[in-house]
């Protein structure tokens, strides 16, 4: 039996855990390649038009997996990874959407409910049913999970040392050494869900683009959970969706942090949670006079549009910097 894991949504956050777990159980795993136009088209075909791009992309990867011969899909139902918070309704309903979308395809779906008090979801209660599905006893499942957890913790600690998910993944998979970090004159706080930032199609490789513009980038996954929690605690009311809270918190952290010169928010058209936190960020950034830019992407956004906006933004920051330090040479 081959288990398919779509390279979309929280893949970027949890794949080291998921993949290691299945492999340790002795189950073959297949994943999809980075999003292509073809995958997107499959997604569009199987989604309602108004749904956000990340969900369409997820659907696309689901069908790509089936076409590549997966006979079992791993579609976890992400319920909660923190007290009092949950996930965007589309995450909560994802397994239902997939279940009915693939009704006439012959495949099994594994949708354990994922609940944990912290983002470390490697709890036996979450994964025991998968072990049972593959006829493993509790001990074997627990052992596989422990190993998976270890890899994932390593992965997250690399994030927190300042490596992006892509860099950390390549390192963990033995594909590339960790890159050397250099100090740049401009640092950008980049807000965006992992499935937007790391999806080559949605963000059009915004990280590489920023790297080429010779700036440092900080993302939410590089910030320690404790630091990330602080601005949320100060709110009158937190958002209800975990990763939205993380991004919002990162945004507020960027606003307060003098080392951050400007903030960029990459978001998908029709994203519900972002429409709120984006507006709040707009109001807050105006109040504390920190440059803030939103880049909204859908399936029709052109790459040149993205390039122009990034370049203009960074240019603006550099000019301001020079004014600040009196180094204007014209």
């Amino acid at each position: 039996m081959r288990v398919g894991i779509p390279r979309a949504l929280l893949y970027w956050y949890y794949i080291p855990l998921w993949e290691t777990f299945f492999k340790e159980l002795g189950v073959e795993v297949i994943t999809t390649p980075p999003t292509t136009k073809g995958i997107i088209n499959k997604g569009i075909k199987h989604s309602v038009p108004e749904i956000c791009l990340p969900i369409k992309i997820y659907m696309g990867h689901v069908f790509e997996l089936l076409d590549r011969g997966a006979d079992c899909l791993f579609i976890p139902r992400m319920v909660s990874i923190k007290k009092m918070t949950t996930f965007c309704p589309k995450f909560l309903g994802m397994p239902d959407m997939v279940r009915f979308a693939v009704e006439d395809r012959n495949c099994r779906i594994l949708s354990p409910h994922i609940k944990a008090p912290t983002e470390n979801i490697a709890r036996l209660s979450n994964f025991i049913e998968i072990g049972e599905f593959f006829n493993k006893d509790k001990k074997t499942t627990a052992r596989a999970l422990k190993r998976a957890e270890k890899v994932w913790l390593k992965y997250r600690s690399l994030n927190m040392q300042g490596y992006t998910c892509a860099e950390a993944l390549d390192y963990i998979n033995g594909k590339a050494p960790l890159p050397v970090k250099e100090k740049k004159d401009v640092t950008i706080g980049l807000m965006g869900y992992v499935y937007n930032i790391y999806d080559s199609f949605i963000s059009m490789d915004v990280l590489t683009k920023l790297k080429n513009l010779d700036v440092n980038v900080l993302t939410f996954e590089m910030i320690k959970p404790k630091t990330l929690n602080a601005p949320i605690k100060k709110l009158n009311k937190a958002l209800f969706w975990d990763f939205s809270n993380k991004i919002f918190a990162a945004g507020m952290h960027f606003l307060d942090n003098p080392n951050i010169d400007g903030i960029i928010h990459v978001t998908a058209f029709n994203c519900g949670p972002d429409s709120f936190l984006g507006k709040l960020m707009e109001i807050k950034s105006e109040a504390c006079k920190k440059p803030f830019m939103t880049i909204r992407v859908d399936e029709h956004t052109g790459e040149s549009h993205m390039n122009t906006r990034l370049e203009a933004f960074i240019d603006m920051l550099r000019r301001r910097d020079f004014v600040k330090t009196g180094e204007v040479t014209s």
Binding site: M84, T85, T86, F87, C88, P89, L92, L235, N236, K237, L239, F240, W241, G272, P273, F276, K279, L280, I283, E286
Partner: peptide, 22 residues
């Protein structure tokens, strides 16, 4: 009225308040 999620309605108030203030 408010709400505790999981949908946006419970957060209308916070956002609207910030907008009214701005």
């Amino acid at each position: 009225s408010g709400g505790k999620g999981p949908c946006r309605a419970g957060y209308y108030g916070e956002t609207q308040r910030a907008i009214l203030k701005s």
